[in-house]
Design a protein around this nucleic acid. Sequence first.
DNA 1: CGACTGATTGACTGCCCTCAAATAGGGTGG
DNA 2: CCACCCTATTTGAGGGCAGTCAATCAGTCG
Lengths: 234, 234
Amino acid sequence: MTTASAAALPPGLRSTFFEGLTAPEKKAVLAAARQERISPHQILQQEGDPAIRLWLLVTGRAAAYRLENGGGKLFLRWGVPGDAFGLATIVRAPARYLVTIEAVQEGSILAWDLPSCQALVLRCPSLSKAVNSVVANYLDGVIDELGARSFQTAEQRLARMLVLSARQLGRAGREGIELDLTNEQLAVTAHVSLFTATRKLSNWQDLGILKKHRGKIVLLSLSFFERISKDTWR
Amino acid sequence: MTTASAAALPPGLRSTFFEGLTAPEKKAVLAAARQERISPHQILQQEGDPAIRLWLLVTGRAAAYRLENGGGKLFLRWGVPGDAFGLATIVRAPARYLVTIEAVQEGSILAWDLPSCQALVLRCPSLSKAVNSVVANYLDGVIDELGARSFQTAEQRLARMLVLSARQLGRAGREGIELDLTNEQLAVTAHVSLFTATRKLSNWQDLGILKKHRGKIVLLSLSFFERISKDTWR
DNA sequence: CGACTGATTGACTGCCCTCAAATAGGGTGG
DNA sequence: CCACCCTATTTGAGGGCAGTCAATCAGTCG
């Protein structure tokens, strides 16, 4: 599993994680990292386990969720290349992971173990700032999600999640923004039943603002869905 | 408004905020603080405003919420004596408040302005750790809340919120744990309509596990409500 | 051409919200 | 002490959003 340390970051990868680091600092951080390959369904970290490593998704896709006591999964967010996880490792020394993260595609990560983290934080103070910033963003995002689930209808949550997913996962295609999502995945992320997801997608396809293929959604324009998700109509 | 600096902390106030500080450090932190009185409906910080001060609730009660674009308030949590807010001030230097906090009772706070914060963080590294810890707790709490609103019924959310509120606001009374909460406040915090809150409270009173007075709820035993809120019944 | 996974559609159900209206507690001023 | 007011609380009736269940259809891959 664990392979050689990474000398250089894949080109084109942008991460808030490295912002504020000088070139030599960045080099030191990369030198301390171990690269690993990941496969679908692989659990990259499990909530409750001791937080002993911080890692960065380099390629692929991951899902962050929390297990509820009924056995259900509370979806929290997608992880895409450049996203950092296991931040508890740095944020408070002896900690446990707050959420579970599972790979949903083939890909790779860069990981730092606990001693490396501590050494790097001492060497690069800006690293600590970056981590705090990421945590604050997560908090902000979760609060937004709470608002969505509290005040928005199923249709609005679907539209909202399409917008968010498009920004994270979307590829620019011939006809619009292409998303590799099954109806079920969208349903889970928007916290809507599979059937209402299907029905709304059908509606939108009939309206011509969307095209569906198996496991794929093409949004002709984001603005439609932004409008739907924000409309307060009273 | 702003009054003399606080030489000593009110006795009996326990805050995670001061854990890990040595006695002289704690003295320095207190010396840099300004004490202020707060009154109901006073906005202590407003989401979106620049985060220019960190503060600690000393006495009284506050409500943290976020304003939704429909004009509604998304309740997030109660603030009770010992709770720290405005953490964005420390966590990432030029930041804005994530949430709005409003006083709901008479009380007082200790506040540190931005320069003081920066000086204190340099002087007391453990302060930074404490702040991170508090932020992580908030994140954990919000995720829990998201789970509750996603998977629990109105009844379960009410029971859960009674338990949480009891731990934060509850006083030990003759007949049980006393809570100063109106039906409407409970309804808002559990994200349930005022009417279903009233109905469930009536049910529970009929069952004899609860007593109601105007603006006050007395729980005879927490375990009943813990069971209700956790029951997954399938 | 099966077999499997993903998508679709219709019928039904139920939780909980909305709205309307009445009741009760608690303080105030006369 | 009583009249009054304002807020908190209670109760009932009705309805809608969206979830559940069952069955069928479609796309992909061996």
